[in-house]
Amino acid sequence: MMKVIVNVFLKAGVLDSQGKAVYHALESLHFDNISDVRVGKQIVLNLDESDETKAMADVTKMCEELLANTVIEDYNIELVK
């Protein structure tokens, strides 16, 4: 059993309207030390797999095919024991 966390965000350079809205909301709450906010999504997978290399390869394929739209999104993968 292995827990894998996938984070998906809009690419740098692609306008993140949600991030911008949250940024302005935080500003209006007087948090004035923020320079940028990005909103993304987190997908948590439990894999029946003990081989980390295999898990990484499988999840990368999942990201490329479904979990992220690589036209507009980047992703990163964290293996959690």
Partner: peptide, 17 residues
């Protein structure tokens, strides 16, 4: 059709949300 890569580009959330 964009997700299936039959057309280029992608559709994002409206700017106004």
């Amino acid at each position: 059709l964009t997700e299936a890569r039959l057309l280029p580009g992608a559709l994002k959330r409206n700017e106004s949300l």
